[in-house]
Write a protein that binds this DNA or RNA. Structure first.
Lengths: 187, 187
DNA sequence: TCAATAATGTACCAATTGGTACAGATAGCG
DNA sequence: CGCTATCTGTACCAATTGGTACATTATTGA
């Protein structure tokens, strides 16, 4: 029988797309096999735990990507203003300028939040805290940094919801624009 | 056989809860019969169109509630500042101070958006436009009013996502607080 | 080359899905 | 009372759900 895929890691992005589009419950094995091109045999070989393990692996991969590309740079020494601008640019790229939905946000709203609650909470809490750390380094008092960071993380999620609801990705761009102007305002 | 319910309208709030908690796909007939206490017979008597008709009816009911209690007051003559404060109070009450999720937002993120796209888009567009109208009456230039209105609607949705993700309803209260302070700032 | 391991397709499973059909039961009304 | 329209439970349906079992095929390292 034909060998299809080399690495388990190769199919995580495909899996991510399926969960993003259909949510956890809606992502049926039929959808998954269709999108990944893998039969049940391969799927359950790579993920013996079934759908739950697939979703957990996808969450972990996303978490890792954000840790490396978004959170860590925010915490690192160096110009905090540049770090914030960088974060916005990477966020815009990741979410395809508002055309892509946030898997973690989708999971947060669904009943699956109970199953992956820790991963979901950690993703957002670390984003918020890393941003707050950058703002603190930039010179804001701790309370103000926390407040602005929470507002920014929340605005990104809201912008993704609204962009998709209105079918207008530009909403997302405008939200990031506002954050770029206001996050570091009043230093 | 026992008569259970008098009005079709009486079960819409129950249906709304089920869709809110499980999403469209996740809201199985089993969940629905359990929550409403109605058997399939009654359900399909009230909603011959099945789940789709149930979801549409719930969306219409929510839409109507917001039209009367939120959008119309924003558009009406009278003190725009008071209207905005009123909107925030009603929003806080409706979403149970962040403990309740927005059904329309949930639908917007899911694949059901394609099915109910018009209703979903209209809900958010009318909210944004009604708020922009109030801000314009308050004296803001049109462009600024539009920008602030979009930001506010988006912040409300984002706050609901973040509140649920972090399992911390207080996030929602803080977001509304910020909106109250900033929406009318700089007149 | 050849065994061991990794990968894969297929057939199968019980449970659940949304939905239909319909025979009863109930309620309101004259 | 009795008639009619409304309501409701039950049995049933084909399709799909997530998951298992297993024989077969590739690949790899010795």
């Amino acid at each position: 029988m034909a060998r299809t895929v080399a690495e388990r890691a190769d199919i995580l992005p495909l899996l991510g797309e399926v969960f993003r589009e259909h949510g956890y419950e809606g992502a049926s094995l039929a959808h998954i096999t269709a999108r990944t091109g893998l039969g049940k045999g391969s799927l359950y070989h790579f993920f013996p735990g079934g759908k739950e393990e697939m979703a957990a692996a996808v969450l972990a991969e996303i978490d890792g990507w954000f840790e490396v590309n978004v959170y860590a740079p925010l915490r690192a020494d160096g110009d905090p203003a540049a770090a914030v601008r960088d974060m916005l640019a990477r966020t815009d790229a990741y979410f395809r300028s508002g055309r892509r939905v946030c898997l973690v946000g989708v999971f947060a709203l669904g009943e699956v939040r109970d199953r992956f609650g820790a991963a979901v909470a950690s993703y957002f809490a670390r984003w918020r805290d890393a941003l707050a750390a950058a703002l603190t380094r930039a010179g804001f008092p701790s309370a103000q940094a926390d407040d602005r960071a929470e507002e920014a993380v929340l605005a990104i999620q809201g912008a993704l919801v609204l962009a998709r609801a209105l079918d207008d990705p530009a909403v997302f761009g405008r939200a990031l624009e506002r954050l770029g102007q206001r996050l570091l305002d009043g230093l």
